Simulated assay, not measured.
Amino acid sequence: MNLLIGVLIAIGFFFVLQYGMVLKMRMKKGKQAPELSGKYDRALKNGGAALFYFYSDGCGACKPMTPLFDEFSSTRKNVFKVNISNDMATARKFGVMGTPSTVLVRDGKIAEFLVGPQPRERIEALLPGR
């Protein structure tokens, strides 16, 4: 009986942490986008909107989304794949706490912050310059 209670508490704790992370990321909507440099900064200043996809090579949930962003980033100039293993600084600036995360920045503000795998249709609806 004690083992069952321990397992249920652990599962509950896990879900509370996950929900807290998602809630914290969603609260970033409407906030000012962080100061960026290089190609990210140029895209935001020139185009006004950019879509950032944060992933890591070891992320199982990222596997179905990464080919979508390969396609989108090769055909659209303001779509960026950010591998957090190589560019943790950008992920930290946005406050990314888990992968995959997708962030839409429009007019200098975070317009959308999605956590977890998303269907193609949802991502296409976010694409800048549609």
Rank of each mutant, 00 (worst) to 15 (best):
V16S: 15
L36F: 02
K93Q: 05
F72L: 10
L17R: 14
Q118E: 14
G47D: 14
S85L: 01
S73Y: 06
G48S: 07
N78L: 02
K39A: 02
S85T: 00
D41Q: 00
Y53A: 10
Q118S: 11
N2I: 08
G20Q: 12
V96H: 02
V103D: 11
E121K: 10
A49D: 13
K31A: 09
N46L: 06
D57V: 11
D107I: 09
K31C: 09
R106C: 08
F69I: 06
C62Q: 08
V16I: 15
L23Y: 13
K39M: 03
F54C: 03
V82G: 06
A10Q: 05
I110Y: 01
S56W: 01
A89Q: 10
T99L: 13
V7F: 06
K28W: 03
E121D: 12
T75G: 08
V96R: 08
M27Y: 03
R42A: 01
V22N: 08
M88K: 01
R92C: 02
N78K: 06
F72P: 03
K93I: 05
M88S: 11
Y53K: 08
K109C: 10
G20Y: 11
F15L: 09
F94H: 05
V22L: 05
L36C: 03
S74E: 10
A43V: 02
K45I: 01
I9Y: 07
R92D: 01
R120Q: 14
